[in-house]
Each structure stands twice: as structure tokens, then as C-alpha cells.
Design a protein around this nucleic acid. Sequence first.
RNA 1: GCGCCUGUAGCUCAGUGGAUAGAGUACAAGUUUCCGGAACUUGGGGUCGGAGGUUCGAAUCCUCUCAGGCGCGCCA
Length: 548
Amino acid sequence: MLKQQLLKDLRKAMEVMDYPATDIVLSTPENKAHGDYSTNIALQLSKLKSGNRKHSPQEIAKQILSHLGDLSYLSKAEVVGPGFLNFFIKPEVLSGQLAEILEKGEDFGKNELGKGEKIQVEFISANPTGPLTLANGRGGAIGDTLANVLSWSGYKVGREYYVNDTGNQVRNLGESVLAAAGKAEAKEEHYRGEYIKDLAEKFKDKLDLDPQSLGHLLADYLLDSEIKPAALRIGIKFDEFYSERSLYERNLIEKAAELLKEKGFAYENEGALWFASTKFGDEKDRVLMTSEGGRGRAEPTYFLADIAHHFDVLGRGYLKKINIWGADHHGYETRLKGAVAALGFEGKVDIIFMQMVKLFRGGVEVKMSKRAGTYVTLDELLEAVDKDAARFFFLMYSPESHIDFNLDLAKEQSNKNPVFYVQYAHARMSNILKKAGEKPIDSCKARPCPARPGLAGQLSHPAELALIKHLVQLPDLVEGIAQDYQVHKLTFYATKLADLFHKFYESCRVLNAETEGLKEARLALVLTAKITLGNTLSLLGVSAPERM
RNA sequence: GCGCCUGUAGCUCAGUGGAUAGAGUACAAGUUUCCGGAACUUGGGGUCGGAGGUUCGAAUCCUCUCAGGCGCGCCA
């Protein structure tokens, strides 16, 4: 689109002037006086002081400008202040951009960055020892949306839930239920909460099983009856539930341990098997296989199982595996990345950390703990607010922000959720098109296109141009998020789009515009706005209502 | 003690080297013969936790420091 064209022309000019090929940052200034696009490239170049050339930023900017020549799509290009280059696009060129949106329709916003490579996003992955919580909802919304964005960027994306369906916490689950039924001694570390009692009742025929076997049954049950439905309720469909237990069944755990030994990164000491994670920057080596003396029995740690898991997944040819973790797992990052590197997949794992969701009740913070039974489930949230509000809420925050959540206020606040502001804009767009007799999505060929001579020049109102400028940014936004993973930018983009549309709506009549041509052009603008907003909402997993 | 995250308007948060630091919300005052007022307009409100430093330029990078969160197991 326009931005790429301008970048290309700038690069050409710099090449002619024999400047080194540095990254050109083309920003879209908030301040209209600074043009439609702006770059600080001259300030950057003057800093390089390449060779014995030493020019002021203003001089460099002027030179670049003179080498650009007359670009037909610009109405003005100028050097301002310390050496900024500001570009002003001709309004008719800007409105001509709408043609591309109309042509692409539901595909508008997609890009080819991924070139068909495979990426896996692993998220939620909560232990199957209880219902999903608020924090899981946050991770779910972020992971699912990131997967959508990657998919729109030309990657083949897999959504994975790693199920820790064996090990201590599952044995503990079995014990907890046995204890609730009075068949085992109650212990401090047991899970509490109503669902444990329900499980004891539901599985009363199975209480003669040992804790581990019962735990396996319960974990499988919770996965199917609690976790999968809750994920679906918030709009998440996983491609794969990867079972930790299956790693044992397929002997992948021993294989991973053997491989690490072969490569010289695993060694035995004090009866345990260790991974030399200090070679990868960890503060100490980590245990892969416990010693009989240490925990009373020799068994693989969670860490070794997870290594086997990553080795198996990456062995399928993924370009990357992106894991979304709670901040409480931060200390685990170095050793896992180290193990992945040791197995020959260095740099293939990216981790997004989300900070904790703090829970407040009656103004007092409640520590969320599955063991203590103090937490808010995702289902409880979804009873208070609908799926769209919940997803939008979670996606409004950057992952590193610490969210304070007050369920008492969630319902009341849900009316103020910006999601309704955004959805209302979409409903307004739909309504106008409906009254004009348009089909919901039309193609450029089937109807007069704003790129057509005559129509292109119709749109000149500041509110129209501001809206167009925002609409055409979606592809760059999506491509950027595919690289920096900052999915919350989408909610801000959607809110801004709604804002610009509401303003346009207030100041520009569509159906009874002054002329037929203007009406036609404005209808096209409404249609493109609807396409763009609809596509954005679809990436967010939020519905785009025709009416509210 | 060490490591990571956070500290920006009354409140909730954007903004990771650029121009006069933004948005929502709250508060105040306005806007409907006409496409949906769940909207729009205007206004007040900031020592960007603090102190130094680097730079033509710092909320952003570096050092120190204060406050909060999380982690530091042969748990997961």
C-alpha cells in the first residue's frame, strides 16, 4: 500500500545518495500538522557520521527530499524542526486506497510474512486438577488471538494445550478426593473447593483405586467436563491437547534423557540425573531424574517430561513454539530454553510472560489458590459478563501489566466495557448499509468503486480522511503483532476505529449526502470501515453484531 | 540476599529514542425536525515514583534508590 510505496521511494533516494541501508521508520503522526507519514531518518543518518561526511540533519533531509523528485501521490513533502521529513498524501490517493480493502474483503489485513512456515502457540495448559480460573482466561484470550494473528500472517498455526495429566499434582488430586470421601487422611497440600466434594460423590464407585490411578481418571474427567467447555465458552478451540502421560507411554522421556546424555549435557550425581543448565546461563544445574534417596523413588521430573514434550513438538518441524506462561514460571525459562538449545533447537522457543491477575472481593485482596479453594473461575466470570466483554477485557492489557480484578464490579463495569462502544460502531455501519440496500460484504467489481475516477475525489472531509488513514493501517498492524506478539494493540486499534467512525457519522451524512456521487463514495467508506472493523473483531475473537 | 515484572491524569491503562506525553472512565458544561444519543462537542486535571548520567533530543537507554507483585525445591 501507500506506506510501502513511500518506503520504497525513500530507500531508492538513499541508495542514490550512497547512504547505508538502515531501517527507515515511517510513523503516522498524531498531529495533523506533521503530515500523514513522517520519518526521522535524517536525524538517524546524521548520527552515523559515516566516513568523513558530516552534515546536519536538516541538510540531509533536504538532500533526500531533492532526490525523491516529484512523487505523484504526495501533495506536499517538507523538512521540519530538527530534520523530520513530513509527507502529505493527496486526498484522492488516500481514498483510492479503499479499493484495496473492498477487493480483499474478509482477507483485508492478511500478510505473507510467515510464508507457510509452522508455528505452535501453547497456552492455558493449566493442570487438570480443577476448573479454569481468571488467569487462565487471560492466557487463553492472548494465546488464541496471537494464534489468529499469526495465521493471518501466513503461518500454519497450531494451538496446543499441554495437559499435565500425571505426576504429583494428579496423585494429590486423587488423594484429595479420597480424603473428602473419608478414605484418606486430610493433608495440608490437598485441593479444596466444592468441586472436590462433587468429584467424591460422582466417583464414589472408584474410591478403592490407588491415588495415582484415581487421579488419572479424575484428570481426564476434569479436562473433558470442565476445561474444554470453559475454553469453548470463551471462543477457544485447541488443535491439540498434548498429554504428559502419553510421553511416558511412548517412551519419549527416556529418549530425551538418553539424548541429553549423548550430547554431554546430562550427568549423574548423588543418585540423580542432572541437566547442565549452568552451561546455558542458569544459576545451577537442574534435576532430570530424582534419586531414590531424595524423594524416596527414582522418577522423571516435570522438567524432563517437558523437555521431551518440546523435543517431540519441535521435531515436527515448527519454525517456532511460542509459550504463554504466568509470571510465576519465570525462573523456569532459562533451563527450558537451555534444554531446547542442547537438543539442537536453539532459539525456537519464545515465551510470553503475563503478570498475575489479582483478585479483589469487597475491596480486599484474596490470594488465588486452587489448593485453598479461593479463586474465581472463568465460568463465574462468564456468568457475570458475556464472552465478548471478557475477551476484550483481557486483551486490553499488555501482558506485563498486573491486572486488578474485582468480580463484584465486573458486571457493573461491563456496561462501560469499550467492547460495546466498538460493537455499536459496527452495528451503526451495518444499519446504514442495510438502509441503503447494500449487501453486507460486496466486491469492488460488483459495485461502483471509490477508486473509479470521479468517485475517488469525493471524499475530502477531515473526518473521512482520518478514518481512511486509520483503516489502511490494519495490514501493517497485523504484521507487526506477528513479530512483537503485542496483541493488545488490536483492542486499541478497534477502539480508535470506532471512535473515528462515530465522529465521521456525526459530521458526515451518508444516505442523504449532498450529491449522489458523495453518497456513493461515503457508502463505500462505510463498507470498508465495516470490513476492517469486522476483520479486527474476528482476530480478537469478538463478535461483530449487525444490530445490538 | 539474588533474579524478573510493574510504578504515567482522581481511577483503569496506552505510549520502549523524537515534535505540545495520549485514551477510556469519573467530574463540569453543552449537542437530537434528519442514517440508532450505547453517540458527539468543549473544559479542567500530569514534578511520567525519586536522583544522577548518556544524547541534538529521554516516560522510553545506563547507574543508584524507593514502593508493590512474582520467583529462587530431587514441586508443577
